[in-house]
Structure formats: C-alpha cells, structure tokens
Amino acid sequence: MNHLILHLKKIEQLIQLILVQGYTNKNSLEIMYFSLLREEQKILNRLMKMNLDSLDAKKKLKVLLSILYRDDEAAEPLFRAWLRSSIWSPSSCPTVIERDFRKSMFREIQHELKETVPYVQQIFDQEQSRYIIPALLRTTNQRLSY
C-alpha cells in the first residue's frame, strides 16, 4: 500500500505542476482536460487522506481509484488533441517550451499510473481489478500465444 501511495503522491505533484502553470490558450480542449486534472487532484487528495483501517476502506478505495484512472483515460486523448491544436493555431498557441513541459508531465503521469497497476491488482483480485483499471493500462505487457 505504501508503494501505491508513493506513486499517487508523485502523480499529484505532476498534476499540480500543470495546474500551477495555468491555461495557455484556454481553448475548449484545454478547458476540458483541466477539469479532469482538477478532479484527479481532488481524488488523489482523498486517496492519500483515506483511513485505510476503516470498514469500508476497500470499497471507497475501489471507487476512488476507478475515477482516477477514468479521469486519466478521458484526459489523455483531449491532451493529445490540444497538442495538435496548439501547433495548428500559432497565433494563440502556447510556446514550445510550455508544450514540451506538459507533454513530459503527461508522460510521467502515464508512467506512474502504469506503476500503480500491480499494487492495485494485489489489493483487489484480477477479476475485480479489470473493472477498476482501464484495459490499455492493464494489458500493455500482456502477451498472448496461440
């Protein structure tokens, strides 16, 4: 659990770095993924403050982690679209430095989220964790042999 919390803390810090930077062009895409990052941050704060000894801790943990992953799943394509839109609208775009910074932040968030997967799978069984962790995060390294 401690390892999981460490990764969650890291994600919270990364999101904070993006949010502190604020809007750059405030187009519809940026507004949408910022709303998701803000929700992620709230969820992360709740996760880190959770009383893990309470009776319903596991149930709450499941809900909060599910929302966290879904926030990221929704934010990622919006962020990618925002990157494209930024390149296509030079007059209202963020600087290359701002773009690259955000790109690296999102990559790190993705990396950290992937790191959480085995810990979540330890807490919940394989079948339950399928409904918590999105397929693409969960199955990246799963190879099939026919």
Binding site: M32, S35, L36, I67, R70, D71, A74
Partner: peptide, 14 residues
C-alpha cells in the same frame, strides 16, 4: 454514462 462536459466515464457507484 460519461460526464457530458469532458467525457469521463462514470463508475457504478456514481
């Protein structure tokens, strides 16, 4: 369902 504003998928409890 999903959040109508940003497309985030809702979880069962929500």
């Amino acid at each position: 369902g999903k959040d109508l504003f940003n497309g985030r998928e809702r979880v069962k409890e929500e």
